[in-house]
Computed example of a mutant assay.
Amino acid sequence: MVGIGSLVDLLLFYTLERALYNRMVCSLGKNSQQVKKAIALWLMLEEIGYHDLIPTINSSDNATIESLSYKALQCLACIQPDSVQPFQFR
């Protein structure tokens, strides 16, 4: 069972991510499930080397966040089984 100290540590560790989630859902009116997917993709990108991606996105204006969220969801849609690629480069 998780102790109270480790729960507090966990909540403190993801403070910025929660703030970005709340901003996108409450202020921008985005779908909570889609926001979770976009943030999960951004967290994975941070893990593989795109450091400070979440802080950079959070410091952006609302229009940029909406655009980045839309692009993240497009990327996730492209890797789904049986997805159709939007276009191909020649």
Rank of each mutant, 00 (worst) to 15 (best):
E17P: 04
K71T: 12
A63P: 02
M24A: 03
F87D: 00
I57R: 04
L43D: 06
F87K: 01
T56F: 13
K71C: 09
T56E: 14
Q88F: 12
V8E: 02
E47L: 06
N22F: 05
L10V: 06
S59T: 10
K30F: 14
T64S: 12
F89A: 06
A19E: 15
L11W: 13
C26T: 10
P81H: 01
M44L: 14
V8W: 02
I65C: 04
S6Y: 03
E17Q: 03
L11Q: 07
I4V: 11
Q80Y: 13
P55E: 08
P81T: 09
S27N: 03
I4M: 08
I57C: 01
L43R: 02
W42K: 07
G49S: 05
I48K: 10
S83T: 00
A38S: 13
L53F: 11
T56D: 10
S59D: 06
I48L: 01
Q74A: 09
S67E: 04
V25C: 05
Y50Q: 14
L73C: 05
W42P: 00
S27I: 00
V2H: 15
L53A: 09
V25P: 02
K37C: 08
T56C: 10
Q74L: 08
L7Y: 01
D82K: 08
A77I: 11
S6N: 03
L11K: 15
